[in-house]
Design a protein around this nucleic acid. Structure first.
Ligand SMILES: Nc1ccn([C@H]2C[C@H](O)[C@@H](COP(=O)(O)OP(=O)(O)OP(=O)(O)O)O2)c(=O)n1
Ligand SMILES: [Mg+2]
Ligand SMILES: [Mg+2]
Length: 575
DNA sequence: CCGGGCTCGT
DNA sequence: ACGAGCC
């Protein structure tokens, strides 16, 4: 079905895509683990502090970062850069989880729609479109400097005063001028401005708990997160150019875009025929190269053999242009899985494995009580015992599956021979119901779980006892039900259909040839070879609607169904 | 001297 | 059960 002109025209007149009218906040606590340790030991706030897990630093405070210490750096290197670095152990995540829970509860209490999505222990997205819209309706446009931000629909007194003439905190771009004749009630700038004041208020509330944070304010999750990165400790950034984010994204290293990981980078480098360092490959490099099409990406990442995510090509291409329609998910009352793991310098005897599993399992049962049992204290109980609370604890969820994961140990001398996670394997079993019986001694539960379920799993994962050498044990309970939704096809035609959808947004076809009726055996692929066309003459090219990058004409001709575009084309900077 | 987690898609 | 991505 060819697109008709009506369709094209409507896209052009109403370029608003889904997500453009939202207000999204992204919070990220500053050096989270370090702040947790500092608040428990305030004298550490002024010294360089690293939080270690075995031989690496999970994170470090900003005093240490001044000396060049980085997150995830080896301890040896960190000590070399900063001999005075103070180390605290962070292998047990319980104290960090407890703080995390406090902060999320606070944020949740200010949300009207429950859309507070947690990312790790220290980040959250909030969709505050409704709160902002409500306050936009109340504002007196003749007295912006003495505005009142309502935090409750029921109680108008609950809120804070603010100056609605200016955005709170940092702004990008720094020289932004609102282009429209005037900011109507519905203007993007005013909505983000309101979001910025709400963000500042919430950051102050978080500081009331003792923790500083960064925040990004924009119209989707991708942009909000990246905006927050712009001004990092204890600050916030509003992306006023959220409607045309390409100049904001272009200078960023590709690696910084959430959703584009190392595998995707490798695939894109092969399309770009570059050997650049990952950090030197920018969004601009990828965005302006015609070889980087949704379909080409799809073939590399999800094509025959690679069981990658269907639609990954489309997703990545859209991310490069700042488009992210994904919703802020509602806060969950209970996590989908709870796991505990530990690493070892090679466990060679079953007795050692058993001891490790008992340790982990004891810890896991304690976590299950804190996270899945209602009414228990919000703080992890000190030291060893699993809470024996026979009291009025009710299970919020009862996981159904127990999974054991192991990985062999390899000494550093063999690190070049194996991938880091080589040999990682896991196996699941039904989680026995007795773990939910609050009348049984916790120590007894752990023993029975290890003897009856985990050791058998271990034997089946690791049948060869002669060269037993374990580097990692992980025990995880799952199955607090996972929703699966109907998925689209992953075949080659579906991949091309997805590319067509992107073409609608982009306004011009990609250079890829349409697939033939039958699948060509993954051949020399002449059609993947996209030649660069060296032409300064833009008359022979068309421009991408989103970013204005020039696409050589042959791309259009190759596809054959875009002749109409030449007439109706509107230069991007016109409006 | 390469943590200890979590979610999602296939 | 595993891979990829995120913190
Ligand atoms: N690969 C990772 C990433 C993060 N973390 C932990 C340690 C961090 O303290 C916490 C939050 O991760 P961030 O990436 O937000 O890092 P920080 O909060 O420490 O620093 P920043 O100030 O840059 O946000 O999660 C970890 O253990 N391993
Ligand atoms: Mg973070
Ligand atoms: Mg952080």
């Amino acid at each position: 079905m060819d697109m008709d002109m009506d369709n094209l025209d409507s896209k052009r007149k109403a370029p608003r895509r889904k997500g453009d009218d939202r207000v999204i906040l992204h919070f990220d606590l500053d050096c989270f683990y370090a702040q947790c340790i500092e608040n428990a030991n305030p004298h550490l706030k002024s010294v360089p502090l690293g939080i270690k897990q075995k031989s690496i630093l999970a994170t470090c405070n900003y005093v240490a970062r001044k000396h060049g210490v980085k997150k995830l750096m080896g301890i040896q290197e960190a000590k070399r850069l900063c001999p005075d670095l103070v180390l605290a152990d962070g292998e047990d995540l319980s104290p960090f989880r407890d703080v995390s829970k406090q902060i999320y509860s606070l944020l949740k209490s200010y949300s009207w729609n429950g859309r507070v999505e947690r990312l790790g222990l220290d980040e959250a997205f909030l969709d505050v479109t409704d709160v902002v819209a409500y306050n936009l309706g109340l504002v007196n446009h003749h007295c912006l400097e003495e505005s009142w931000f309502c935090l409750s629909r029921e109680d108008p007194e609950r809120g804070f005063a603010f100056d609605a003439r200016e955005v709170k905190g940092c702004v990008w771009p720094p020289d932004f001028v609102s282009d429209r004749e005037n900011e109507g009630t519905d203007s993007l700038r005013l909505r983000l401005l309101f979001g910025s004041h709400l963000a500042f208020y919430l950051r102050q509330q978080i500081e009331g708990l003792g923790y500083t944070s960064a925040c990004g304010i924009s119209t989707n999750k991708l942009l909000a997160k990246l905006a927050g990165d712009r001004n990092k400790p204890r600050n916030q950034t509003t992306l006023l150019s959220s409607h045309s984010p390409v100049p904001f994204l272009d200078p960023l290293p590709l690696r910084k875009i959430p959703g584009i990981g190392s595998k995707t980078i490798t695939a894109m480098k092969s399309l770009l025929k570059t050997d650049d360092d990952d950090d030197d490959l920018t969004v601009h490099n990828a965005r302006t190269n015609p070889a980087v099409s949704p379909f080409a990406l799809e073939r590399l990442l999800a094509g025959s053999g690679g069981g990658g995510e269907k639609g990954i090509g489309q997703k990545v291409w859209l991310l490069l242009h700042g488009i992210d329609g994904s919703e802020v998910k509602p806060a969950r009352d209970v996590p989908r899985q709870i796991g505990i793991e530990d690493t070892y310098r090679g466990l060679t005897q079953l007795s050692q494995v058993r001891t490790g599993l008992v340790q982990i399992t004891t810890s896991l049962l304690r976590r299950m009580h804190v996270d899945l049992l209602d009414d228990v204290d919000a703080v992890t109980p000190p030291i060893s015992p699993v809470p024996t609370s026979v009291g009025k604890g009710r299970w919020l969820a009862q996981p159904k599956t127990l999974r054991l994961t192991t990985r062999p140990y390899h000494p550093p001398s063999e690190w070049d021979k194996f991938e880091y996670n080589h040999g990682r394997v896991s196996k699941s079993a039904v989680l026995p119901r007795f773990v939910f019986d609050l009348n049984i001694e916790p120590e007894s539960i752990a023993e029975r779980l290890v003897e009856g379920t985990l050791m058998p799993l271990f034997h089946s994962l690791n049948p060869d006892k002669s060269k037993l050498c374990i580097g990692l044990l992980n025990v995880c309970v799952t199955n607090m039900d996972r929703a699966k939704e109907s998925s689209r096809g992953g075949d080659i035609m579906a991949a091309f259909q997805r590319q067509r959808e992107v073409e609608e947004i982009r306004g011009v076809a990609f250079a890829d040839e349409p697939p033939d009726g039958e699948e060509k055996a993954e051949d020399t692929s002449d059609d993947t070879e996209v030649e660069w066309v060296e032409e300064e003459d833009e008359q022979d090219g068309v421009r991408c609607r989103l970013c204005g990058c020039v696409i050589p004409v042959f791309a259009v001709e190759a596809h054959g169904r875009w002749h109409e575009l030449d007439e109706g084309w509107v230069e991007p900077q016109g409006g």
